[in-house]
Design a protein around this nucleic acid. Structure first.
Length: 809
RNA sequence: GCCCGGGUGGCGGAAUGGUAUACGCGGAGGACUUAAAAUCCUCUGUCCUCACGGACUUGUGGGUUCGAGUCCCACCUCGGGCACCA
């Protein structure tokens, strides 16, 4: 093993002193912004999963630096939020104190993993100088009409005692703690992300992101093209508007379903014969948890509004109206026309409630209408559809919409971003509510009288140091108990007013941090937290690496915020990350790491035992970065041995060389391409092949230097030490990536495979450019081939230049 | 149910339609050593064979091709995302 401990100490100091990893932000000629999702500083310390992702990102940054780019690789801490707060609660340490402890420890560990971070541009989201601008961003949202307050049924986590955004509810459970989420009727702050639904969807086509993340966003935004069609209610002035993607099946609509929360239920139920029954159903439905609704998928429930009839605009038929919770109020119009013959859910419901099932689409043109045992949701030919009979269902859609006076529309599943949280450890929402102004219907927004943004000059609204920071569970933040915090003056009329006491979702902190890094220290006196020239130079981010679990959280919010800032002309781009790659999950012996299983790999332990370079290199050697890896303790010995052997070779005096050996070119080419594709594992195996050869044949000076440069992204310490020992100019990390000659990268001597009927029977050595007739002649001379040919007649010979001769019998 | 990824030795994993199993781990044998560790060398997909050699092998079944881990069709299976979204 090489003396890693001494080497690491030496170079950490020297790199810092010489600012090897600090680009000149103003003068840089080829800026390259290499970013990794910043971590939340858990008190437990840096997880090996963090290390895996960070090193994966750093290898790329170092590679780009060697290719001549001015690489900017900043680091900071996403320290606000429930995770940090919960830990503080558990340990009984105040989050503000805990943050300082975790910060120190985390930065120490981040230094130990040997990344080329720009340490001068650090940021922490809980720093008032940072969240001042998070609050400023909230104010801008408010001023541009993208922030609003509304009472509605929202997700509530009983364990975290706060509301959650839809994106934070994973399969009915809280994203943070796994507790089943319940519904609560509360007045909350929202951001109008839905305004950008279409742009968020469309722009995905133009960005180079991991496909799975783009697909997840597409699914989440959930665009459907369909139509709005109005159904008249007999004896009423109101109409019910439904959304459907299948207007072609309207002749088969045999009843109407309204979401129980739909406003029109309230208006119609008074005229129904069974008011009590309806009310009872509405209450039961409202009290159902997300989990119960999912469990009920097949067993549909509902209640008829007896005596109420809707009129099918296609054929004038009167059809019954139901309230049922299989229709959700927040999507489309909250009302549907039910076509049981062609929709599985309607079919289930119709069977249970004995409603007519009328076929209007036939699979074959000649097929006669019949009641089939299941719903047919596909395309076909219209039947039972008046003048549209015989038409292809897909083609009749438009005409039918016109015929019934409908309107074509696109609908999205995406809902507005619920931004307020009833917790302590976050940036206070910078809003003030004045009762007097509200009564007199004054304020900054006509629809929300009484509400004012805190004037920008008064930001930040500092999070007060309070003794009891635990969540209350009452639907109010702990700050609601702090009089000195919430008592203030109305910015409008000067009367006594009350501050908003909720804090904002910490995903707002991380939705703009990438904008801040390049301008850290340069923003003073600015109207917004970044320098325009610097931002134009460095952004958008050139390479962003992070976890796929943020596909619809951080990555979607960040895109939304950038689009808004672009519209306000504060930045010049709408997409913050040109390239995004999702790294895979790191496993331990095939299993997920977890504290409860006790199989968590602690990077500190391995770093002190084998050195940073070995841990870095082993992590990158496991598998392609995007695939994730499987950590086996025994496996690390492979790279430990490799580094030890490289060290030994570096101790000897190299053989003088004018230029690199011809055989190196193919290796340089492969490593260059592998690193570009984040296939670090094969790049490392290629380095191993090179070292094996250098050991066997004796290391030439140029060959070994090229080897060290290509090794340096993975093992920055050892590469730097040996580079110096070989007389290289400081630093190996600022030198140039070796170039390959494409002609030399192809070997001169080749082996042509000889096949008989596609089976390998031998091989012939030759120079490149072997002709077909020569190849055939040589092949037929082989003993093994002769034996085969004897038993048949030669039909054909296939020759692929310099690769294969196939004798077909 | 729909949409993305995967499925290759004992293990992690390599393979622009052209030598399947690179590189590494583990294992076996050997060298060095009083001994062990470390290090170095050789072997290591399965089956048949003393051997020479041969047959088989990339989840399953078909297909295209001179030739398929790779392309096409159907299915099984694991991981992830979405999900009563009309």
């Amino acid at each position: 093993m090489h003396p890693f401990s001494k080497i690491e100490k030496k170079w950490l100091k020297r790199w810092e002193k010489s600012r090897v990893y600090e680009p000149d932000r103003r003068k840089a000629k080829k800026p390259f912004y290499n970013l990794m999702m910043f971590p939340y500083p858990s008190a437990e310390g840096l997880h090996v999963g963090n290390a895996y992702a960070f090193v994966g990102s750093d290898v790329y940054g170092r590679f780009k630096r060697l290719q001549g780019y001015d690489v900017f690789e900043p680091i900071g801490l996403d320290g606000f939020g429930i995770h940090s707060e919960n830990y503080a609660i558990k340990k009984g340490v105040h989050p503000m104190k805990q943050a300082k402890i975790s910060e120190k420890n985390f930065y120490r560990q981040l230094q130990m993993i040997g990344n080329g971070f720009a340490w001068n541009e650090r940021l922490e989201t809980y720093d008032p100088e940072y969240y001042k601008w998070t609050q400023w961003l909230f104010v801008q949202m408010w001023k541009h009409g993208l922030a609003y307050r509304k009472k509605q049924s929202v997700n509530w986590c009983p364990s975290c005692k706060t509301v959650l955004a839809d994106e934070q509810v994973i399969a009915g459970k809280c994203e943070r703690c796994g507790t089943p989420v319940v519904r609560k009727e509360l007045e909350q702050w929202f951001f109008k992300i839905t305004k950008y639904a279409d742009k968020l969807l469309k722009d995905l086509d133009g960005i180079d992101w991991s496909e799975k993340v783009k697909t997840a966003q597409r699914n989440w935004i959930g665009k459907s093209s369909g139509a709005l069609i109005a159904f008249k209610i007999r004896g009423h002035l109101q109409t019910v508007e439904v959304f459907t993607t299948r207007p072609d099946t309207i002749f088969g609509a045999t009843y109407l379903v309204l979401a129980p929360e739909h406003g029109i239920v309230e208006a119609l139920k008074a005229d129904a014969e069974n008011l009590k029954e309806i009310d009872k159903y509405i209450i039961t439905a409202a009290n159902k948890s997300e989990g119960e609704r999912i469990a009920e998928k097949k067993a549909k429930t509902g209640v008829e509004l007896k005596g109420i009839k809707a009129i099918n605009p296609a054929n004038g038929q009167e059809i019954p109206v139901y309230a049922a919770d299989y229709v959700v109020s927040s999507y489309g119009t909250g009302a549907i026309m039910a076509v049981p013959a062609h929709d599985e859910r309607d079919f289930e419901f119709a069977k249970k409630f004995h409603l007519p099932i009328k076929q209007v689409v036939a699979k074959e043109k000649s097929e006669k209408p019949a009641v089939s045992p299941e719903a047919y949701g596909g395309e076909g030919y219209l039947v039972n559809s008046g003048k549209f009979n015989g038409l292809k269902s897909e083609e009749a859609k438009g005409d039918i919409v016109d015929y019934v006076g409908g309107k074509r529309v696109d609908t999205y599943k995406l809902r507005d971003w619920l931004i307020s949280r009833q917790r302590y450890w976050g940036p206070p929402i910078p809003m003030v509510y004045c009762e007097r102004c509200a009564e007199e219907r004054r304020g900054e927004n006509k629809e929300m009288p009484g509400w004012y943004a805190v004037p920008e000059k008064d930001l930040p609204v500092k999070l007060p140091m309070v003794e009891d920071f635990r969540p209350t569970g009452t639907g109010q933040s702990p700050l609601a108990a702090v009089k000195s915090f919430y008592e203030t003056k109305c910015p409008g009329c000067g009367a006594k007013a009350r501050r908003e006491t909720d804090v904002s979702d910490t995903f707002l902190d991380s939705a703009w941090y990438y904008l801040r890094y390049p301008s850290v220290g340069l923003e003073s006196g600015k109207k917004f937290p970044w320098d325009k020239i610097i931002t134009a130079k460095w952004l958008p981010v050139d390479m962003y690496i992070g976890g796929a679990e943020h596909a619809v959280l951080h990555l979607l919010y960040t895109r939304f915020v950038a689009m808004a800032l672009k519209d306000w002309k504060l930045i010049g781009f709408a997409e913050p990350f040109k390239v995004f790659r999702a790294h895979g999950l790191l496993l331990k012996e095939g299993a997920k790491m977890s504290k409860s299983k006790g199989n968590v790999v602690n990077p500190d332990e391995y770093i002190s035992k084998y050195g940073t370079d070995a841990v870095r290199m082993y992590l990158m050697f496991l598998a392609p970065l995007e695939q994730g890896g499987d950590w086996y303790d025994s496996g690390i010995m492979g790279v430990v041995r490799f580094l030890g052997r490289a060290w030994e070779v570096g101790q000897k005096k190299p053989i003088g060389q004018k230029s690199v050996s011809p055989w190196m070119h193919a290796h340089i080419k492969k490593i260059t391409m592998d690193i570009s594709a984040l296939h670090y594992n094969t790049a490392i195996s290629e380095l191993m092949v090179i070292l094996n050869r250098l050991e066997k044949e004796g290391a030439g000076q140029k060959d070994f230097q090229s080897f060290l440069i290509m090794l340096s992204p993975f093992a920055p310490f050892l590469a730097e030490e040996l580079w110096e020992a070989q007389g290289g100019k400081f630093s190996v990390h600022r030198t140039a990536w070796p170039k390959f000659n494409p002609d030399l990268a192809e070997p001169e001597e080749i082996e042509v495979i000889v096949q008989v009927n596609g089976k390998v029977r031998g091989r012939i050595k030759a120079k490149t450019g072997l002709s077909k007739s020569e190849a055939q002649k040589l092949a037929l001379e082989l003993e093994a081939v002769k034996k085969q040919v004897k038993s048949g007649t030669l039909k054909q010979v296939i020759y692929i230049q310099d690769k294969v001769v196939n004798i077909v019998l």
